[in-house]
């Protein structure tokens, strides 16, 4: 007997019962949309045009979170992390081009940018984590990590579109490390250490709504006009920083990217050049969970498939032809 197309199709249609039931059932009603920002969401506004690259935030972050030194220079004198890592939650990076003649200019210029957790509104890491070790606070929206739940699978590390959660590869008891917006300092009445120490107000802390309004105010400013920039916490700012407004790119990064983030960024240089990729508005978490809920929503499809399979196997094993 040779296999004909007919035989194959028959076999495939029967054999792939589970697959076809599960995969071909369109269920648009179950499609999960982007999650929404918690009303009291807290976050950061990073304005690259104000950042002078002093690394005060890097040092303060280390201190506030009790993280160890990370050296990258031959003399091994200072904490000089090259990137965020299992030992560093926050880093300032430099963009350089050509002669580096002017700050915040794309050609022949340079710019500083902060890299730390963006606290997505609909985070991929939370969606990826199988054991609820990554959670998003329903009130503040802070994405935090629970080492006691974590199994160390690093799905969050791989899933994050910004490469933020980092793993410790050099210990027998590793943890994931990421910025948690200094939530451990909140009971003491303190806020994010990076914003607290920022001398220029480049990193500003506060409710995301207020930060977004502030970002819009800055985008509306005329280049060169004297402008006032709040420092610290936008609700209770320190003495302001007064200086001429820079030339802004008319875009707030994090406003729409993968459903929005609670850290917003302003810059004079294209974000893609600063390591912040152009991302769609639909969150990857919602895409993934739509696929999953389409296939496994209420376990309906798998149970139907199991019923079919039990029937089919019973039939074949009963007639003795294929019985064990």
């Amino acid at each position: 007997m040779t296999i004909t197309r007919r035989h194959f199709l028959k076999a495939a249609s029967a054999g792939g019962a589970a697959a076809t039931v599960a995969l071909a059932t369109p269920a648009p009603a179950e499609a999960r949309t982007n999650k929404l920002m918690p009303p009291k969401a807290l976050g950061l506004l990073f304005d690259a045009t104000l950042c002078i690259g002093c690394k005060a935030c890097v040092a303060a972050c280390k201190q506030a979170n009790g993280m160890p030194q990370e050296v990258s220079t031959p003399e091994r004198l200072w904490d000089t992390p090259l990137d965020i890592s299992g030992k560093t939650l926050n880093v300032i990076k430099v963009y350089q081009h050509g002669t580096n003649a002017e700050k915040d200019r794309e050609t022949n210029g340079f710019a500083f940018v902060k890299k730390s957790c963006l606290h997505c509104v609909d985070p991929s890491c939370v969606s990826a984590c199988p054991v609820s070790a990554m959670t998003k606070d329903p009130e503040t929206g802070i994405v935090s990590y629970d080492k006691d739940a974590c199994i160390g699978c690093r799905y969050c590390v791989a899933a994050c579109p910004f490469g933020v959660p980092r793993f410790q590869y050099d210990t027998a008891t590793p943890q994931i490390q990421k910025c948690q917006l200094c939530k451990h300092r909140m009971p003491e009445g303190k806020f994010a250490a990076c914003a607290e120490v920022c001398p220029t107000g480049a990193t500003l802390y506060g409710p995301v709504e207020a930060l977004k309004a502030e970002a819009k105010r800055r985008l509306a400013m005329k280049e060169g006009d004297e402008a006032v920039f709040a420092r610290g916490d936008i609700r209770t700012p320190y003495a302001p920083h007064v200086r001429p407004a820079a030339k802004y790119l008319q875009r707030i990064y994090g406003e729409t990217e993968i459903g929005g983030t609670q850290m917003l960024l302003l810059s004079g240089v294209a974000f893609a050049k600063l390591g912040y990729p152009d991302l769609p508005a639909q969150s990857y978490a919602s895409r993934s969970e739509t696929v999953q809920s389409t296939l496994y929503g209420g376990m309906v499809a798998p149970l139907v498939a199991l019923g079919g399979l039990i029937w089919a196997v019973r039939r074949t094993t009963k007639n003795g032809e294929a019985g064990e």
Binding site: I92, K93, Q96, N100, H241
Partner: peptide
């Protein structure tokens, strides 16, 4: 006297982490 200085570095510091580091 208390107002912040604008950094006039014509070059960013050489030992700074770049946007893309080989890792």
């Amino acid at each position: 006297i208390h107002a912040l200085a604008d950094l006039k570095n014509t070059y960013p510091p050489a030992s700074y982490p770049r946007i893309v580091e080989d890792q």
